[in-house]
Simulated assay, not measured.
Amino acid sequence: MLTTSTPVTGDAIKQAIENRDGRTLASFYADHAVTRIIDRNNPPSRPKEIRGRGAIASFWDDICSRMMTHHVDITLADGDRMAFSQACTYPDGAKVFCIALLRLEDGMIAEQTVVQAWDE
């Protein structure tokens, strides 16, 4: 079980994503956090939901274990809201792009919505 928590900043999330550091990414989430993913397979009416910091840590471990590059283009923060865009490339050249919207509680991610698209 994760016990370390780290308040999230734009610079910190950029560094963790670009370095494929799943443990640090997981440390940004509140224990009760929810991540919702909207994409071709998970439409807005039925987004994929990942509940709890442990499950979100597993999600990030999977993403960070993939042989791909990650680049965070933009991070914006306003009070208890944050957003960032992320471009990823697999070794074969296939690309993924996502935008994430975050709601923070006490500096920790409480809710995240990810909208993503990928090459097919």
Score class of each variant (00 low, 15 high):
M1S: 13
T3V: 14
T4W: 05
V8E: 05
V8K: 01
T9A: 08
T9R: 07
G10T: 05
D11A: 15
D11F: 05
I13P: 01
Q15P: 01
A16H: 02
A16I: 05
R20Y: 02
G22L: 02
T24W: 02
S27F: 03
S27I: 03
S27Q: 04
F28C: 00
D31G: 01
H32N: 15
H32I: 06
H32K: 11
V34F: 04
R36V: 03
I37K: 09
I38H: 07
I38W: 08
R40H: 10
N41W: 08
N41D: 15
P43G: 08
P44Y: 07
P44A: 13
S45A: 13
R46M: 12
R46P: 04
P47M: 01
P47T: 00
G52P: 01
G52M: 02
G52K: 01
G52F: 00
G54R: 03
A55V: 00
S58P: 00
D61T: 05
D62F: 10
I63A: 14
C64R: 03
C64L: 01
C64P: 04
R66Q: 14
M67Y: 06
M67G: 12
M67I: 08
H70E: 14
D73G: 15
L76A: 14
L76W: 11
L76F: 12
A77M: 13
G79C: 09
D80N: 15
D80H: 09
R81D: 12
M82P: 06
M82E: 07
A83H: 00
T89G: 00
T89W: 03
T89Y: 02
Y90Q: 12
D92V: 03
G93N: 04
K95F: 03
V96M: 14
C98P: 03
A100K: 03
L101P: 04
L101A: 13
L101T: 12
L102Y: 09
L104A: 03
E105R: 11
G107I: 07
M108Y: 12
I109N: 07
A110E: 11
A110S: 12
T113L: 13
V114W: 09
V114Y: 08
V114T: 12
V115A: 11
V115S: 11
V115G: 07
A117Q: 12
W118E: 15
W118L: 10
D119W: 04
E120K: 10
